[in-house]
Nucleic acid binder design. Structure first.
Length: 180
DNA sequence: CATATGATGGACT
DNA sequence: GTCCATCATATGG
């Protein structure tokens, strides 16, 4: 039992808060004998049906998954890429945080983009609807020797319709953040 | 089944 | 900034 692993309480808050707090945390991916570790450097928050950019407005499986309990992994495909999200807040609240970029710590792959990072650490639909808390080969932990960093926020990327809010968060001056 | 649509990424201006 | 290949999904019949 690692005390370092993020608990359910961490995800039991609103998506905006969780998106910010996830920055600097360590994502661990076990692939056979290899353990790939990376730092989360960029995220986006998505809300319920009042969010014009959110898939929660749809009526299908995406919305259903966002309503599930905090810490549920949500994977969905767009433009030939897998995008990975973590469901946040209380069950029945459609909220999620999208992982947009990682800083590889002990491997060398381009993780600067939501589609690229899933390719790099081999996340696919197999993880969809699973809980992040009981995966043997994927988890998130605190980074106890993390340096202080500044958080920057912008509007979300690639949306047809976005909210007039800044819901994309990233670590300032980190070169692994996607786009400019 | 058919068709539309991107929470993309890479190439290019 | 713009263009567009490409395909997993959503949705309608």
């Amino acid at each position: 039992m690692s005390l370092n692993k993020l608990s359910k309480d961490f995800f039991l808050r609103d998506a905006r808060h969780v998106a910010k707090e996830l920055l600097g945390k360590i994502l661990v991916r076990k692939l056979g004998r290899k353990i790939l570790m990376s730092k989360i450097v960029e995220t986006e928050a998505y809300f319920d049906e009042n969010d014009p950019g959110s898939r929660a407005r749809q009526t299908g499986d995406l919305r259903k998954t966002m309503l599930m309990s905090a810490g549920t992994i949500l994977v969905y495909g767009v433009h030939n890429n897998w995008l990975v999200n973590f469901v946040t807040n209380k069950e029945g609240k459609a909220e999620a945080v999208l992982l947009r970029a990682l800083e590889p710590l002990n491997f060398n792959s381009n993780c600067s983009g939501p589609g690229l990072l899933t390719k790099a650490i081999q996340i696919n639909k197999n993880f969809h609807k699973k809980s992040i808390f009981n995966q043997r080969d994927l988890w998130i932990r605190n980074n106890e020797k993390e340096d202080k960093f500044e958080i920057f926020s912008t509007n979300r990327i690639g949306l047809r319709k976005d909210l007039p809010k800044k819901l994309r968060f990233y670590i300032k001056n980190n070169k692994f953040v996607s786009k400019k």
